[in-house]
Design a protein around this nucleic acid. Sequence first.
DNA 1: GATGAATGAGTGTTCATTCAT
DNA 2: CATGAATGAACACTCATTCAT
Lengths: 197, 197, 197, 197
Amino acid sequence: MDKTDILPDKKEAIMNAALLLFTKRGFYQTPTSLISKEAKVATGTLFHYFKTKEELIDSIYAISKKEYKEALIKGFYESSTIKEKMRTLCKNSIRWAVKNPEKHMFIRLFCSSPVISGEIREDVEKRFTFIDDLFSEASESEIFTDADPRLHFIFCISSINGACDYIIENGLQDKSEAISETVFNLIWDGIAKKGIN
Amino acid sequence: MDKTDILPDKKEAIMNAALLLFTKRGFYQTPTSLISKEAKVATGTLFHYFKTKEELIDSIYAISKKEYKEALIKGFYESSTIKEKMRTLCKNSIRWAVKNPEKHMFIRLFCSSPVISGEIREDVEKRFTFIDDLFSEASESEIFTDADPRLHFIFCISSINGACDYIIENGLQDKSEAISETVFNLIWDGIAKKGIN
Amino acid sequence: MDKTDILPDKKEAIMNAALLLFTKRGFYQTPTSLISKEAKVATGTLFHYFKTKEELIDSIYAISKKEYKEALIKGFYESSTIKEKMRTLCKNSIRWAVKNPEKHMFIRLFCSSPVISGEIREDVEKRFTFIDDLFSEASESEIFTDADPRLHFIFCISSINGACDYIIENGLQDKSEAISETVFNLIWDGIAKKGIN
Amino acid sequence: MDKTDILPDKKEAIMNAALLLFTKRGFYQTPTSLISKEAKVATGTLFHYFKTKEELIDSIYAISKKEYKEALIKGFYESSTIKEKMRTLCKNSIRWAVKNPEKHMFIRLFCSSPVISGEIREDVEKRFTFIDDLFSEASESEIFTDADPRLHFIFCISSINGACDYIIENGLQDKSEAISETVFNLIWDGIAKKGIN
DNA sequence: GATGAATGAGTGTTCATTCAT
DNA sequence: CATGAATGAACACTCATTCAT
């Protein structure tokens, strides 16, 4: 899990090629032979680094999520209010997705796919419990309208993902900061009790 | 309403089996042999009704979208205000998804998949232009906060889909009417200018 | 075998369609479904008249050979010398092939193919023993150069078939009478002892 | 001489097995699974060396024709007269066919079959233009009777092929040299003007 | 007789994976 | 470490043939 640091050239080449191909063509339409070809390694080399094709996808998923997490928390703990924390998450999230569209797409495509092993998925989810905590706290502080915090959470995630789709589909990368501000307001106006700041 | 016209028994059995299997296992992990087995027909029969596996998926997509559309517009034209129209769409959408979880899932899984032929996709999209019109009208009437109506649209769809996920994941089907009211409020409070009804 | 006389419409349509398709596309690249489609009958109808696809080909072969034989002997028994008899055969053969190119091609394609049942083949060969007799007679009469009459026979057939190919490939149907005279001379000059007429 | 360069063992085994099976059973009645079985390789191995079944047949055709050509020209350019050149071709042709009956049969079966790709066919035909040249030269030198050189050509080829059939069908391999002399005389007496040597 | 929906064995081909070099 | 030839199970799809109507 921590070999991330100094990846052998070939391993990295394989993962990069696979990320591109999986997002462009899908997992099952991407033969391992094509991945090794694009990565300019022999077919056997792929299986030297990854026992199976699924292990390769697991690794990409884990790394992408790790990077996403790192981007997500930038400035989070420095934000003083719940509203600020949420704004930070919202902006970080959109910013990262726009800068790393393949990784973002990869996560969305495979987050609910049975291709990702349950084990990896659980490991990864642990990194994000701090968000659940934030929503619970907000609920308890009566900042949010009455509703299951999980519903609020899903509402936020969905809206953020929708915004990313919007930006990428319409090529609005250069306006993404403004859009993420707009989206955060849409969300906050829905979620927060009137009069809360 | 449930069938286009009068589908032959076997054709229907194949489509039903395929719908279940595709949503449970995915398109590429579902061999046609398994579909025909579950549908209790011979392998050749599947190809008697659908020239290719892709034509089968196209057919399921088209029918599901057609049924969704029919559910969506119930009471839509009878709603007098834009707010009422949107509430109707939101509730109809969630209601249909909760009643037809496989078809809902099928549409979400395959709506952006290249497996669906472009031709079918275009045919289908035409049925939903009335929603674009509604958003444009709302924008022009200055009912919505300033933002691209396409962003508002994506925001709504994402939120609704998020709500469906929430209901289905948590087994809250019996509370779906209340949840959809909550979600509509989340959306409306985000989207509409303050003071608009 | 003698139902040839009054063929039911559909049976004839099937045989005609099959003759064309088999010569154009080959036996194995011609599905029975295509034959019935071209013949404008249902798939079951083909198998009503012919127990199997192979029986269909046998029937076409037998009929074609029968017609060929009938064309071949026109004027044969009226010819007085061996040379005249051979000229008659040569000319009749080319004339028929040029007028019935599909049937000629069909015979050539399938004459040595295992697709034709041995039984049919034997039945058919019997009709042509009169040619063997002619060659034996010619050999015994010391009209031909010394060589196995079977070699002479194959030499003649090959040359005649070559001539048919030449005419059909080059679209020289209108010159086929002259060509067949030329070819007969080529053959005769090869076969007959010098000074024989 | 026997192989293009140094063919891998398995590739050669596949081609040999396929040559035998295709001539014995025909192209469409020979499943690739049977070829790999006879060649004692896995099904995948066949497709490792030949992208498709058709590419396999193309390769066999090209190699057979290449070998045939090499056999055909032995002593050709050393022959001084047109008659000698033709005798050389006739004898070389029959000799090769008798020694390589499967390859000979393969060429005859597939030379006019659409299974062979047009590209391969053209490549191959180029090797044999020297024969056309010979016939044109003979025609222009007024050595041959008046007739289209293409007719003479077809007449020769047909006769030679007929002779090969005769030898192989009747098991006369040990007499093939004498027979080819006989056949050459049949041909020459037909083709050449009287008194030409 | 005539139909065409239904059958299922059989085909060409793919591709994740192994392993000798 | 790295290679790529070799493997064979699995797949989408075809098509001769049957049979209830």
